[in-house]
Nucleic acid binder design. Structure first.
Lengths: 341, 341
DNA sequence: AAAAATAGAACAAACGGTTGCGCTGATTTT
DNA sequence: AAAATCAGCGCAACCGTTTGTTCTATTTTT
């Protein structure tokens, strides 16, 4: 097993050139003669020479790797997001290191530290549903590791982030339900820590006020996204004296659980009770009783944009510190998708 | 921005020790005095010293990173598999680099090359559904990068692999259908390139023969896993003079499409026609008309086992080449899960 | 023909850490 | 008291590549 990979030194030895000459030859440096250049290149090709990336990473203090931290990959939202990240990374010849927090703050911290130590050049993050403290990300600034958040973003002005504009989608969703004749619209919201949860409620109230529909706070319940809590939330809604005729749920997975609960309660979906949610999962197409509509949040586009910003930051780093360093804060418009059926 | 990370050199300078002393002190080398050791460790802690991984990777010619190549992450099967890989990697303090082939052979090759250049220490692979040629993986041997395949594995004796034992699951599935009274059992199989496709048919025939049920080859159709082809396959089956009363599909996604088609054809699921498939996706639980049963293939366990083998190989590499180098070939037993409903 | 300019290549340092070996002064052995 | 031992630390090489500087012919200029 002659497992030794060819190095510049090896090429230099065979051709009786110096290592530096070989290096420059391969880089088409002007101070290398044509003959030499040809010889070097040919031998390099013969030997299948590939620069040792670990040496380069070390030398350049760059790893050409971006880290991605997100709650999990099993939600299709995030696996689609990965595609957006990968695509941009590939264009820039970067690799992607992925870590799942599984919505656990400690794991999130641990991964962030591991990625710092691995010397990733930058980080794309969608925070866990319980994260309230962002120190483990903020501290990366000391190491010049830029961080761009997407989808689940911290509620801080001093970070780069790309998120869905829940406002628009929520507005469309509620108006859609009102148009369909619904007046008692329930909401199964996410944990209060999540920025999107607050925004959803604000928009919900705004729309109802404008349409002069009385707001009933008992119609607003929360779930931590687990099935158990969603069932509880549904029970609370259905046990009301005047239960809602339509429910807005924080995402499609919650909607699925909610629908399941409604069916167990012998309710006719889309007749006794209708659902609208967020995410627009492909799986919806296979359901017998899907939500009436979903707010598409374009995970691919969000993640892609976040990654593009990250690469901008890599370059901006070289630019002398502008005093007023701008923080990117992009909103991707959601879009209500009405499911035909 | 004092972005300079602390180095051994920095610690040595401040304490007026040599770099080597500092290095050894941090590693509890016996030839370093207690006083010195304490001083060094304290300052290291104060400065938040962390060894520069890129330097270590370079020096040790190891990246402590394993590469994973799989068709895609949006199939829950694979995102669960990732968890198995991550868990084992974490125990061994390894990072995980992920690449999706999107079932495209060229992308698969490209990723394999990129990972080789990144100097991953080893590779976990589930091949694309069209891959017939394995040179891009075999050639990694030259670079001493071990490869372990899982789930979708090459049909070669000279590779390490972990796969599902389709035999058992398929047998259970068909016998289950026969017990339910079905005599005309259709199969929507995968592309012939896939090893599992062949095995499925063999078992199918064996079971039918044993049960003395006549084999009708027109009941066996194939799909490339796309919806279009699955619909075509379904059409072929349903247009038969004596269409099947039950269908075995290669996986749950195909089953979903097949069920959708059957419903469009006004067939009553689980009455006019029943389905059994492979994978046992969680989503099944939300369906109104799920397959009767699914063969669970334990992606987490498969991937975990594959990764454990990979780490074994890392160590085995140091052992002098045994002439008879064994190739791992693990089969994980599938298990038919009958969906209650 | 001597001086200046230039092309083409070599030298050497640097990135940060590990490690075999050698050095020094103190302690123990004979 | 001289010799041997040893604890404790420094020196230097090395991993592969890049790059600023220097060197050496050769060519061009005057």
């Amino acid at each position: 097993m002659d497992n030794k990979l060819p190095t510049l030194k090896e090429i230099a030895r065979r051709l009786k050139f110096s290592v530096s000459t070989v290096s420059r030859a391969l880089h088409d440096h002007p101070s290398i003669g044509l003959r030499t250049k040809m010889q070097v290149k040919q031998l390099a090709k013969e030997l299948n020479y590939e620069p040792n990336q670990t040496a380069l990473f070390f030398k350049q203090q760059k790893t050409h790797t971006i880290g991605v931290i997100l709650p999990n990959l099993k939600e299709e939202f995030f696996s689609q997001a990965i595609n957006g990240i990968e695509d941009v990374a590939k264009i820039n010849k970067y690799s992607v290191l992925i870590g799942q927090s599984h919505d656990d703050i400690d794991q999130e911290k641990q991964i962030a530290i591991a990625m710092k130590n691995q010397r990733v050049d930058g980080l794309i993050v969608s925070i866990s549903k319980h994260t309230k403290n962002y120190d483990h990300f903020i501290s990366l600034r000391k190491y010049n590791i830029p961080v761009v958040f997407f989808d689940r973003v911290p509620d801080l002005p001093t970070v780069h982030k790309v998120a869905s504009n829940f406002n628009t989608g929520t507005k469309q969703a509620i108006e859609f339900l009102i148009t369909k004749g619904h007046r008692r619209i329930g909401v199964i919201n996410g944990p209060e820590e999540m920025k999107s949860s607050k925004e959803r409620i604000i928009t919900y109230m705004e729309v109802l006020q404008k349409k002069r529909i009385k707001i009933d706070l008992s119609l607003i319940v929360t779930t931590d996204l687990t099935q158990v809590k969603t069932f509880e939330a549904m029970k609370n809604l259905l046990d009301l004296k005047y239960p809602p005729t339509a429910i807005l749920t924080i995402n499609d997975y919650v909607a699925l659980d909610a629908i399941q609960y409604a069916r167990k309660s012998k309710l006719k979906i889309n007749k006794d009770i209708s659902f609208v949610s967020y995410a627009n999962l492909p799986i919806i197409n296979y359901l017998e009783f899907p939500p009436l509509a979903s707010v598409e949040q374009y995970p691919y586009e969000q993640a892609k944009k976040a990654t593009e910003i990250l690469f901008d930051l890599f370059n901006a780093d070289n630019i002398p510190d502008e005093e007023e360093k701008k923080y990117h804060n992009i909103l991707i418009e959601g879009q209500l998708i009405i499911h035909k059926k």
